[in-house]
Write a protein that binds this DNA or RNA. Sequence first.
DNA 1: TGCTTGAGCTCGCGA
DNA 2: TCGCGAGGTCAAGCA
Lengths: 261, 261
Amino acid sequence: MEELVENPDVSTARDIIEEYVARKYTLQINGLCSVNYQGRAKSKLDRGERIVIVKQCSALLVHGPENYQPKNWQPEVDSWSVEVDDENDELVLEARRSNPEELVEIRFEEIDLVTVNKMVDKSELKIRGHEVDIHESIEDDPELVEEGLTVIERERETPAGFIDVFARDEDDNYVVIEVKRNPDYNTVLQLQRYVDEIEDEFRGDIRGILVAPKMTEKVLAYLEERDLEFVEVEMEDVIASYEAIDRSQKGLSDFGPEYET
Amino acid sequence: MEELVENPDVSTARDIIEEYVARKYTLQINGLCSVNYQGRAKSKLDRGERIVIVKQCSALLVHGPENYQPKNWQPEVDSWSVEVDDENDELVLEARRSNPEELVEIRFEEIDLVTVNKMVDKSELKIRGHEVDIHESIEDDPELVEEGLTVIERERETPAGFIDVFARDEDDNYVVIEVKRNPDYNTVLQLQRYVDEIEDEFRGDIRGILVAPKMTEKVLAYLEERDLEFVEVEMEDVIASYEAIDRSQKGLSDFGPEYET
DNA sequence: TGCTTGAGCTCGCGA
DNA sequence: TCGCGAGGTCAAGCA
C-alpha cells in the first residue's frame, strides 16, 4: 500500500491525490463530501459521508453507506482537477469526460482516510449462463429443448434478422428457436417475424419455440395466442452441458467439480 | 471510524468482520482474494487484489482495480457467513440471498486493510433529466416542442397504454406526443399504436410526435416512414424549464444558479 | 410478491 | 466512432 493517511488536512490530501490520480493507482477516500454532476442529466448531492474510489483505469465511484449502486460516478474520466478551495477549506476533486460531455465535482469538507494502492489483478472473470451459452448448449445437446431435435443451423440469417437456432423436429418439421434469458413481449414478436419469414421461404407451417430459463404468465399467453411454443431450460442444465463441452475440449473445465456446492 | 487494521491475520480479520457485518456498519476490506458466484449464472474469479465493500443495507461489492462495475456483487444479502479455513489459512466470507437463490463466496488469502465505519449520509440525491422531467417541462412550456401547442392531457389512458402528452397544435389538430430519453424502434411502434388508437377515437388524422434529446438515423427513417414526426429537445432546456418551475413553486430551486458551471 | 419500465443505465461487439 | 443488444442488469412504481 503506497499511502495510508488518517484524517489528513485538505492540503495534505490534495498533495497525495494530485500525485497519484491519473497515474494507474487505486485511490480510496473516505470523507464528508458533497457532489454535483452535470452532463446527460444534472444532479446534486448534499454533504454526507461517502467512499470515493478512483480506479486504475480512471473510473470514479462515489458510494454512500446504502444501496448497491453508487450515488455518483464516471465510467471513464478524461481529465482530473484537484484543488483546495481556501475560502471554504475544502478539497475539490473534478472528473471530466467528453463524449458525452460530463463533469463530476466532489467537495470534501472532511477527510477521514486516504489510501493509495497499486492493485494487481490479472485474473479474468469466467462466467457462464449468458444467452450465448444457452445457444451452444442446445447445439451440443438439442434434447435440452426436445427429444429427436436436430440442429440445422445456428445464427441463420433472414431479412428479419438472425435466427438463434434453426432445426428439425423428429417429424421433420422445421423449427425456429429463439433463445432469451429474459423474455418479454418483444421476444415473442421477434420469434413471430422469424417464423413468418421461414414460412414464406419454405411454404409450409413452421414451429416456433421460445427457449428461456424463466417465463411470465402474460408473455406465455401472448406466445400461445400466436401458436408459438415455450420450452423452459434449467440454467443448471445449460451450465452442466457447457462444462461437459469444456471438459471434452480442454480436458479440464474452468468450472470443475471442485466448484460444485 | 470504528476499526482500522492493517495487515491483520485471518482470525483477527474474522473477528472484526464477524462483529460488524450484518449490523449496519460499512466495511471495507482490501486484500488478495478469489470469488465464486452461483445463482442466476455461475462465475469464477481467481486470486487477485480487490476491494470488498459491505454496506449498511447489506449490499456487497467486490471491485477490482479496473472498470466501473464490480467484478462480483450481491445487491441484498440475507445471510452472512464468516469462517476461517484453517487448512488453507484463508478467510471465507459467504453472502447468500434467496429470491433469487444466490451465493457469493469470497476467499481471502491475504488481507491488507480492514476498516469499519458507521457512515452517516442523510442527503438525498436530487437529480433532473429523467424522462418524467421532460414530460413536466413540456406541460409547463409546450413551445419546447412546437409553437402554438396546447397540452390537453398528460398520461391519457388508451387501450394501447398511456399517452405521455396529448395536445392540440395551432391549427387545432390533435397531437400525440411520446417522450423518450433513448428512443428506439420500439418507441416508434408504441407511438404508432397510440396514434392509431386516437385516430379510431376521433375519426381523423392525428399527428404523432416523438420527443427525445437524441435520435439515430435509422429510427428517424422508421419514424418518417409512418408519417410520424421527431422533435429534439435539449436536455439543458428541459432542466432550465424545470428549475423555473422549482423557483416559482418553492421560491428557491434545488438547482439554483450557484450550481451553474 | 410479481410485473413493467426506465437508467446519467454500462459494456461489448460489429460496422 | 456510432449503433445495437444483453445484463447475475438494478431499482422504482404499481397492481
